[in-house]
Amino acid sequence: MNDNRDHELINRCRLGDRVALGQLVKEYERPIFNAAYRVLGKPDDAADVTQVVFLKVFERLDQYNPKFKFFSWIYRIAINEAINHRNRTRNEQTLEEEQFVSVENPESSLNAEQLADFVQDGLMKLQEDYRVVVVLRHFSDLSYQDISDVLHIPEKTVKSRLYSARQIMKAYLADRGIM
């Protein structure tokens, strides 16, 4: 994420440059898709959310303030959109999630795919404000400051939520013999 390059691409998009649009989408589509997937737990939903995120970004391009980092802005839109999407579909997801809970395996016997399933299942057990900080820290590799900027919460709150979320994740994985 390069702020100067992002700002240049945004300016060109504002002038109607679709080449710049393509470059900006290419830079952010994968990280946004992955963050959305970690919040939602379903690739198809994450793809839909990713598309909506970019639509909203470019609809609101004139509202973007270049004093702030573009990636903070797009991540914020992505997180909000993912949470909104999840709230809209919460009822149908609850039943599906319950089906994962009874599965238990020690970490040593898990293959990467099974471990990934457990981790994603553990993430989905977290309340949303905890899940989001774990996603931004561990899957989007954002710093405390960056997470603070994205979520508009103090750094101290970021650390506090991260601590609580990790304790829950640790307990969840430990219950399944993974830790």
Partner: peptide
């Protein structure tokens, strides 16, 4: 990291109309 679903990039670009 998950790979981007096939066709998502095209979907995104096709849906965006620049100002």
């Amino acid at each position: 990291e998950l790979d981007l679903p096939a066709g998502l990039n095209r979907r995104i670009l096709d849906s965006i109309e620049l100002p």
